[in-house]
Design a protein around this nucleic acid. Sequence first.
DNA 1: AAGTCAAAGGTCAAAGAAAGTCAAACCAAA
DNA 2: TTTGGTTTGACTTTCTTTGACCTTTGACTT
Lengths: 179, 179
Amino acid sequence: MSTISDLIEEFLLNTLGDDDSLSISRNELASYFSVAPSQINYVLATRFTPARGYTIESRRGGGGFISVVRLTDNPSEVLSQIVARPISQGYSYNTACSIVDRLVRDEVFTAQEAELIKAAISDKALLTPTMMQKDSLRASILKAVASAALKRCNCKNSQSDPAQGAKAPDGGKITDNRR
Amino acid sequence: MSTISDLIEEFLLNTLGDDDSLSISRNELASYFSVAPSQINYVLATRFTPARGYTIESRRGGGGFISVVRLTDNPSEVLSQIVARPISQGYSYNTACSIVDRLVRDEVFTAQEAELIKAAISDKALLTPTMMQKDSLRASILKAVASAALKRCNCKNSQSDPAQGAKAPDGGKITDNRR
DNA sequence: AAGTCAAAGGTCAAAGAAAGTCAAACCAAA
DNA sequence: TTTGGTTTGACTTTCTTTGACCTTTGACTT
């Protein structure tokens, strides 16, 4: 069964379509789905995270709105960020998966590759006793994988695509807010 | 004589039929058979193991579910050996690489996938202090990856579109992990 | 310009809904 | 009587939903 949050996510994704941003009224959306307005925040906080390649902007007061922006920065940027990030900060499994999925979206990885990577960084695969250790290990493995991916990325990119501007407005933090 | 666990197994197998995967609610199933919910876990843990050709996925919380995924029924010999082998025996990096290369020749993995896997199991990626620990960890990761490779969709299916977050309403893919 | 106010949206914690874990109790067969 | 597979239930973890209360904003007065 899929939850109302899933439906809202789907609705937003559909509304987004091929565009790279959309703007809505929180209250309207909430009443359209008959949920508490704060549930909209929940959906945004859990599904439209930077790790997944989105950011949120909003304004309060009369004429307020929320907008969802699809991050369109260069995939190799994302890879570089993973590589640059200190291992000690670690990644939860879910955050790591969000990132991997996001990279599938950006066509850095195929869906099959993503499955393999996710398997490799699953709790199951990571024997280590404590969660903290797992998170670090995951960061380290992901880093190695990202480096490997960067290599082929460089090969592919060697002659392409100047026409893409649009950097992340926030310096592109890669974290996931899910609880 | 047949225990209730056997009946639950049979029920699941029937429900699975010819499909590659099924998705159920643990609580519903438990109450259908009037058993403790955790008995469902017992059945899954003892009867739907990778060794027997299945893996389990699940999600907790509201809208939670358990899904049973059938692994390919004509697995690569090499792949099944990896899954069967005890982790404690470990793999050196070189051995592991040979195996992965072998799997490339067998067309289980693409060359690109192989690169990523090798990166994931490189000494660099594996933080752990002692070599022995690294070797075990490598075995565990490789096992998880092999297991993922045994999922059908990973073997032959790629015809459909993976490009956007999985639209399959209600019948298809369960592989989640997102949140 | 400053003050007021209603209309947004934001935060947070509690309650609810699943599933997971683990060890103790149970039972059948050797 | 020991052993190994089953069954159960108490407790934990994860994800979702709701509601009460907080902050920001712009328009409207004064």
